[in-house]
Design a protein around this nucleic acid. Structure first.
Lengths: 190, 190, 190, 190
DNA sequence: TATGAATGAGGCTTCATTCAT
DNA sequence: GATGAATGAAGCCTCATTCAT
């Protein structure tokens, strides 16, 4: 058991180092990742016999983290609006851990997009979400908007709550100024 | 004149082939690009002495096309809503030509984002665009949403007008169902 | 210690193979050198990340060997004549190892020319060496004469002692027949 | 005839430009040489269909110039000492034109070395030149000493006469101080 | 098991040479 | 005849991967 947990710990640390390294330089090689993890190249290959397997593990880790957070969020037991707010916060949290995945990787990670799709579909059925846009486009849109906001927030030092809030507003309400929202009246003047 | 135009034509054809090739396989090498353009590797290097220079030329071409389309759109002489519609159509048109640039490339090409930023700033001042989100985040959001819609539309065979329409709606109004738009009442049921 | 010495041994063997290969074909590529050393191209690059670095290492090795031999010769503790004889023998020995450096390489390797210059300068001061020729020209002359004699000797299978003897005589006394040397009287006839 | 002479003039100019260019950068490519000659790459290939043919022409030109100068010197009709002086002056003159040939080129250009060999052989027979060194080694020695002196002189701005004088003294009398030459007594002190 | 050397396939680039205008 | 574009072979170098210690 000790070996397993040590191994698991190492694997996490390696993946964490890989995520950090690749976030900065997406073209970083195995040697650079190994250095960042404080191990030798050969050791990295003992854990991940292939670069592709490392990337997949990274993706799986993000997927798993997202899946877990979204599951804990009980999206299907709250109203759609609240569900989207929770989902956005979860995605931002994951995105901050795995910025590298916000670019580059093509397939939309079917592992956790399903639950997002289900939520949005419920929203469409219930009339809270527009139905003139395919659900998968909505899912992708939410993901890229989260990506944009996380990246922008990272540069500006914005907190996770604010990032989530902006991402959610952009996704749900768009860039148009809400005409009747008194909470915003003062910000721009009228 | 003949020589110049031939060279210019060849360059365009090469860039076009490069855009097509890289859109399919972002890691395509110079040899593959040369083959796609119907020339030899050495000839490709006559035009672009470096892979980096080819990518920059590609980016510059997209930038130029976008700049030109946006300029022709007279964004600053029409209402903000109409301006955003025109801008979105322009970006979709460019995006369809240079899908490769919708991923991978980091800097948001300051060449043509300025005019978008100006338009959105005018919208914020005039009250049509929300002011609680930084302008550059809005610009990035529009770009990635266009990217999502172009990629999705490409897979589904959707026409440019429909793609532009969806992208604009997502950007401006978000995913929330417009509560009072009778045009959409019938689509999902109520 | 084992690791260090193994590495050092490999490096020496590679340099030795490189010297041999380049002596035959000065334009030999890295692959050819690697083959001659019995290793793969990539391995050669592990030791010398650049062709230039390999050439520099080669030059440095010759420089070091020359410096060491000249140092052991205690040139500054013997009469100038004896010093020049020792220096010539040392240069011939080095030259036989690094024939490749007797051509091609431009800068006269300041590492070990200094001691030669010092010796010749002492000779000029002491009246044994002509003072109407700059010291650095004398140094260069000795080096190229050694090169000529080593190359010629190599083709003719002459031994190092004879090569050194000829080089020294050419350098010190020139091509003119020593008018009063009875030891040579008989060789050409009179 | 006009065409022929124009061609001949061009060829000379090209070779001259090639000699100059290669003297500075021995690895210069055909394009660089063509540029230096003020013509296009293709044109250079009209004159010299191969890089090797250009180098051979260059060598042949130097050989021819040397042969002609040495022939005009009537080496076989003057005393050996005077002959060597004339030969050295001729070689220095040629060397200043074709510095590039003072390095790199391996075979000692049999075209004009024959006359040098003949002269030295006559010297050996007559007792003016030492006989304990093979003639071809003497020839090579003279050539490399001329090379050293030309290069050194070029850097120091020395005139051709002085360069020739130093080269001849080094070749004939070597580096040893002539014990009984009163002309040098004052230079070093005694 | 961790290490670091060895490997070799593949990429980028140069350059001598040929070809069409 | 002169030009400049086109060619492709060959060089240098990187990096994912394997092997021996």
């Amino acid at each position: 058991m000790a070996a397993v947990s040590r191994r698991a710990r190492s694997e996490r640390e390696i993946l964490s180092a890989a995520a950090r390294t690749l976030a900065d330089r997406p073209t970083a090689g195995m040697g650079e990742i190994a250095s960042a993890a404080g191990i030798a190249r050969g050791t990295l290959y003992r854990y991940f016999p292939t670069r592709e397997s490392l990337l997949q593990a990274l993706e799986a880790a993000a997927d798993e983290e997202a899946r877990q957070r979204l599951e804990e969020a009980n999206l299907d037991q709250v109203p759609v609006d609240e569900g989207l707010a929770r989902a956005t916060r979860a995605l931002v949290a994951v995105g901050e851990h795995f910025i590298v995945l916000l670019r580059e990787r093509r397939p939309p990670e079917p592992g956790f997009t399903a639950v997002l799709a289900a939520l949005l579909l419920r929203g469409q059925s219930g009339g809270q979400v527009r139905a003139d846009v395919p659900v998968d486009v909505l899912v992708e849109s939410l993901l890229v908007l989260v990506g944009v906001c996380v990246r922008a927030g990272r540069g500006a030092g914005t907190g996770s709550e604010d990032i989530s809030s902006i991402a959610l507003r952009l996704f749900l309400d768009g860039a148009r100024r809400p005409p009747s929202d008194p909470a915003l009246e003062g910000e721009v003047g009228d």
